[in-house]
C-alpha cells in the first residue's frame, strides 16, 4: 500500500509572461493528512491547489496520485477524486436542490446514486442551514450559506482529496466555523485535506501539518 497519496516531483510552473511560481519543487502528502499551506500571499498556495486538480498544468515535473501521474489520468475522473473548493462560492441559477444535484447530471458521475431529498435535507441540517429549503433559489442565499452549499455539493461526490482555497475568507464567523468543522469531520473520515487559509496558521488547527510554499519551493 502506497501511503503517499500525492507526490510532487520537480514541479515547475509559471503563468505566461510572469515569473515562475514554482521551480523544481517537491513534496509528499500522506493519505489522510490535513495539510495547511503556509506562505506569503502570492507565493503560489492557490496555484498549487489548482495544479493538484489539473486546473493548471505543470511546465515540468510530475504530480502523482498513489504513484500514477495525474497527467496520464482522465482529468474528468481525476477531479471527482480530488475536489477543489473555490474561494468565491459559485452557484448556478435555480433551486438549492438543482445546485446540490448539479454534478449528478454530468456524464462522468452517472455511476453515482442520486441522493434523495431526505438525505439532502439531513445534510443541510448538519451544515447548520436551518430553514434553507431545497426549493428556494440558491442565488438568494448569503455568501456564507452559498459556500456551505458548495462544500456540501462536493462532499456528495465522496472525494478522496479535498482542496479548500481560502474557503472562509469571505464568510461570517458562524459559516467559517461550519466550513472548518466540515473539513475536520472529513479528515476524521480519512479524507485527505489541503487547505489554504489566511485566518489561521497550521498550529491553530487541530491535527494539521504545515506545508510551506517558499521561494518557489515546497517545505514540510
Amino acid at each position: 500500500m502506497h501511503s503517499d497519496i500525492l507526490t510532487i516531483q520537480g514541479l515547475t510552473f509559471g503563468y505566461p509572461g510572469r515569473d515562475k511560481v514554482f521551480k523544481n519543487a517537491s513534496a509528499r502528502i500522506r493519505a489522510g493528512e490535513l495539510v495547511v499551506l503556509e506562505g506569503p500571499s502570492g507565493a503560489g498556495k492557490s496555484t498549487l491547489l489548482r495544479l493538484l486538480c489539473r486546473l493548471e498544468e505543470p511546465l515540468a515535473g510530475t504530480i502523482a496520485m498513489y504513484g500514477e501521474s495525474l497527467a496520464a489520468m482522465n482529468p474528468v475522473r481525476l477531479r471527482r477524486r480530488i475536489c477543489y473548493i473555490q474561494q468565491t462560492p459559485t452557484v448556478v441559477e435555480g433551486s438549492v436542490r438543482r445546485n446540490l444535484l448539479l454534478p449528478f447530471g454530468f456524464k462522468a458521475n452517472s455511476d453515482l446514486e442520486v441522493p434523495s431529498d431526505t438525505y439532502l435535507r439531513q445534510r443541510l441540517e448538519e451544515f447548520l442551514l436551518h430553514g434553507v429549503t431545497l426549493e428556494q433559489p440558491a442565488s438568494a442565499l448569503s455568501v456564507g450559506q452559498r459556500q456551505r452549499i458548495c462544500v456540501l455539493r462536493s462532499l456528495l461526490l465522496w472525494p478522496e482529496v479535498m482542496l479548500f482555497d481560502e474557503p472562509t475568507s469571505a464568510l461570517d464567523k458562524e459559516s467559517a466555523a461550519v466550513v472548518m468543522r466540515a473539513a475536520h469531520s472529513l479528515h476524521a473520515q480519512g479524507v485527505t485535506i489541503l487547505l489554504v487559509t489566511h485566518a489561521l496558521e497550521a498550529g491553530e488547527i487541530e491535527n494539521a501539518v504545515p506545508l510551506r510554499v517558499n521561494g518557489r519551493k515546497l517545505e514540510r
Binding site: 474528468v76 473548493i85 459559485t90 462522468a108
Partner: peptide, 16 residues
C-alpha cells in the same frame, strides 16, 4: 470563468 471551473471541479467535461 468561476462557473466553468466550478463545474470542471465537480466532474464536468469541457463540453458540459
Amino acid at each position: 470563468r468561476n462557473e466553468v471551473e466550478m463545474m470542471l471541479s465537480l466532474g464536468a467535461d469541457y463540453r458540459e
